[in-house]
Amino acid sequence: MAIENRKVTVTVNGQERSAEVEPRKLLVHYLRDDLGLTGTHIGCDTSQCGACTIMVNGAAVKSCTMLAVQADKSELTTVEGLGTIDHLHPMQQSFWEEHGLQCGYCTPGVMMAMIGLLQENPNPSEEEIREGMEGVICRCTGYQFIVSAVQKAAKIMAEAAAKDGEAVAASQLVGEGTHRG
């Protein structure tokens, strides 16, 4: 409390945003409370559940494990930057089609974690998807339809990549629609 607030500036979903925060503030609280990006959720206090997973400089990170000040000058993608209602990201579209969500609370974090997985392994087996979900917990679905959704997303993204003639799964990360701040 005696420590002065710091200005933290990030590029989130393609937009530069900044806010003055306490140095102890978690990145997830900065996103939610200071930037109003409430699509990223908090499900635990010990970094087990993964509901807060976002992309930090292209890698999936649990945003409760970082301080906001550590993210200063970083590029962030949250669920709000994935796709729009009219133009869903393949991961969002696949979760919808395969019923990969019920309450939808863990979903943004799970989707981010799975996008991270596909960046590393664009064509994972069912077993690899299940293991890739080690860092997230879903209490509603029993995971099976999430697995189906990730398989479908991987296929769509691989096809898109083949069409573009290069492995661009990563470049799809930020949706083509408007960037919400």
Binding site: R32, L37, T38, G39, T40, H41, I42, T78, V79, E80, L82, G83, T84, I85, L88, Q92, F95, W96, E97, H99, L101, G104, Y105, T107, P108, M111
Partner: peptide
């Protein structure tokens, strides 16, 4: 497919917090 999903999939849900 569920009606509720586009909202939840795009971060447009409105949970208590």
């Amino acid at each position: 497919k569920r009606k509720e999903d586009p909202r939840l999939l795009t971060g447009n849900g409105r949970f208590s917090d």
